[in-house]
């Protein structure tokens, strides 16, 4: 049970219940759809970008608590960042949830550090990274459907 509380931290449960930046984004500049065929999770990420800066970002879709909270917290974190900064965050987040040796208190990740518990659940890594892969697809290759498979 203690382990489970590491995974399902209060912040994650809260963002699952009331996801932030959830819904369509009118006049988006970039968007992509993501799909995790293993569990049927689907989400799309849409961004507004001005001078290389993310001015607004929203997501839509359905998924488990981990994928929904991850998307919600991601949108909060990247708003106001440059596109290049989102790429750096992608790498740090990826390390956080996959690398047993990665620090669990990476200050650059801020609240996203609550996902450190995912590394103990390899079957759930794909849920945690779906939003991030979708973001990267939107940024690198607008309008692409990505899959975690």
């Amino acid at each position: 049970m203690s382990d489970l509380r590491e995974l399902y931290q209060e912040v994650i449960l809260d963002h699952n219940r009331s996801p932030r930046n959830f819904g369509p984004l009118e006049g988006a500049d970039l968007r992509a759809d993501g799909h995790n065929p293993l569990c049927g999770d689907r989400l799309s990420v849409a961004l507004k970008v001005e001078d290389g800066l993310v001015t607004d970002v929203r997501f839509e879709g359905s998924g488990c608590a981990i994928s929904k909270a991850s998307a919600s917290l991601m949108t909060e974190r990247i708003k106001g960042q440059t596109i290049d900064e989102t790429r750096v965050l992608f790498d740090r987040f990826h390390r956080l949830v996959t690398d047993q040796a990665a620090p669990t208190d990476d200050a650059a990740l801020g609240k996203l550090a609550v996902f450190a518990g995912v590394r103990a659940y390899p079957a759930r890594v794909k849920c945690a990274v779906l939003a991030w892969h979708t973001l990267r697809a939107a940024v690198d290759d607008n309008h692409k459907l990505v899959s975690t498979e």
Binding site: M1, D3, L4, L7, Y8, C39, D41, S62, G63, C64, A65, I66, K68, Y121, A123, R124, C127
Partner: peptide, 13 residues
């Protein structure tokens, strides 16, 4: 209010 995937992880423990 709970996705199947979360159920699977929790009962697995």
């Amino acid at each position: 209010g709970v996705h199947a995937h979360d159920i699977g992880t929790i009962v697995d423990t």
